[in-house]
Amino acid sequence: MDYAIEVSNLHKSFMTYEPKGTGVISSLRRTRKVKAALRGIDMQVGKGEIVALLGRNGSGKSTLIKAIAGILYPDSGYVKTMGMDPWNQRKRLAMQIGVVFGNTHPQLYWDLPPIDTFDYIKGIYGIEDADYNARLRYFIRLLNLKKIYKRQTRQLSLGERMKCEMVAALLHLPPLVIMDEPTIGVDLPARMNIRQVILEMQRDYGMTFLITTHVVDDITNVDRVIMLDKGKVIFDGSQEKMRSMLARDVILELRFGVDENPSRLIRKGKIMKFEPGYLKAEINPSVLKEKWLTNLIKNKKIIDYRISEPNLSTVLERFYSSTNKGRRKRGKNSQNKKDGYR
């Protein structure tokens, strides 16, 4: 397969300082600490793929994409972006990539209207007049920018700015687009616009997208999900695979007579909602085969029922809480070891 991004055994650490003690003196007495942000990352992104990079805050997502974009120099390991060494061939690579840094490092000039930034992009990427005008018209229509692209950037809402950031990253039609939380703080209509643009760009130009996000809806249309935790890849596969790995339980919704009390089900499942005549719970699929439940249905004590798979946010919530538990457990174990327990 032809890869847009190839990463192998990538490591990156940072020096951090922590104050010792409290009060004003603590700012003078500091402890130097090395924080490992990436700890042996292995991943590939094929050309034309849309890949979501997930992980909790501090898991290494942003560090990874900055190493891929040629901004950070890795301590060790191998990175090839569009077949180039991102650090040593940074300027050449920059012609091949578009980057959106969410709201943290906007490309748009704050005191100027977005159209000035677009003109600047046209100049630095050498976009021909006719192409530039056609692409601008296309994005203005697709992202509904007609009323905003000539207004000062600082007067635009976050969603409007993010849509313009998208245009700034895509105007030169880069084969690879890297987006760091492009929909953070953006309302639903703008998010849908952004998603639509990503899909159209992939379909029409075969662009590759690597998107870090915390917004679950953002990954509904991606080809693949890569999950990071503590600087390591802990999952790499399709959404379906992720769902089946993490979501072993199903969601059962029951409507029953108000006098009924499905107490056994309450004991066997994780209750999500319970009110007279209605119950929603996460249960192990094996429970569905138990005789007492089929009897309830047969005897028409249950008026209606619905079985569904948990949605992605539930899956991710479960994943994050499971890694938290893992962390607590590991922490406890290491404390136990320190304390001499076996």
């Binding site: 901004i71 920059a94 840094f101 490092h105 630095i124």
Partner: peptide, 13 residues
């Protein structure tokens, strides 16, 4: 503040 990122993604020195 990290805004150096914005300059390093440009095809210029």
């Amino acid at each position: 503040g990290g805004s150096i990122s914005r300059m390093l993604i440009r095809p210029m020195s």
